[in-house]
Every structure is written in structure tokens, then in C-alpha cells.
Deep mutational scan, measured.
Amino acid sequence: TTVKLGDIKVTFDNPEKAKKYAQKLAKIYQLTVHVHGDTIHVK
């Protein structure tokens, strides 16, 4: 599962960890989390 934020891409083996990371980023940057299959976009 890949978390994308602009040019930053972080890949996790564990989808749950990816989701938590995405939510953490979203909170920090006051953005929202969008899940598209294996990719989680923070924008």
C-alpha cells in the first residue's frame, strides 16, 4: 500500500499502518485521505 502526498511516496507492507500514517499526515497538514485501491492519497 502506497501513501502519496505531493511528490512524497511511502510504501507499506501493512495496509493498516499505511492508513494510520496517512491519517497522521492528513492531521498535520490539515488535508483529507482518499483511498484508491492500493494507493492512499493525502490531499
Rank of each mutant, 00 (worst) to 15 (best):
T1F: 13
T1S: 05
T1K: 05
T2C: 10
T2I: 12
T2Q: 06
T2S: 07
V3F: 03
K4D: 04
K4F: 14
K4P: 02
K4S: 08
K4T: 10
K4M: 14
G6H: 08
G6W: 12
G6S: 04
D7R: 15
D7A: 14
D7C: 15
D7Y: 15
D7G: 13
I8H: 15
I8D: 02
I8E: 03
I8V: 10
I8Y: 15
I8T: 07
K9E: 14
K9N: 09
K9G: 06
K9F: 12
K9I: 14
K9M: 13
V10G: 01
V10L: 12
T11I: 13
T11A: 07
T11D: 05
T11W: 15
T11Y: 15
F12Q: 00
F12K: 01
D13C: 12
D13W: 10
D13Q: 11
D13E: 10
N14F: 05
N14A: 05
N14M: 05
P15G: 06
P15E: 08
P15V: 10
E16N: 09
E16K: 10
E16I: 10
E16Q: 09
E16V: 09
E16D: 10
K17I: 11
K17E: 13
K17D: 13
K17N: 10
K17A: 13
K17L: 12
K17Y: 10
A18Q: 01
A18T: 01
K20L: 11
K20D: 08
K20V: 09
Y21W: 13
Y21T: 02
Y21N: 00
A22D: 00
A22P: 00
A22H: 01
Q23T: 08
Q23I: 11
Q23C: 15
K24S: 08
L25E: 00
L25I: 09
L25P: 00
L25N: 00
A26Y: 03
A26L: 04
A26P: 01
I28D: 07
Y29T: 04
Y29Q: 02
Y29I: 03
Q30Y: 08
Q30E: 08
L31P: 00
L31S: 05
L31N: 01
T32I: 10
T32N: 07
T32G: 06
T32L: 07
T32Y: 08
V33N: 00
V33E: 00
V33D: 00
V33A: 04
V33T: 05
H34G: 03
V35R: 05
V35T: 07
V35A: 06
V35G: 02
H36W: 10
H36K: 09
H36P: 00
G37A: 06
G37Y: 05
G37F: 06
G37T: 03
D38S: 11
D38G: 07
D38T: 10
T39Q: 06
T39W: 06
I40H: 02
I40D: 01
I40W: 05
I40A: 01
H41E: 14
H41Y: 14
V42A: 02
V42T: 02
V42F: 10
K43I: 15
K43W: 13
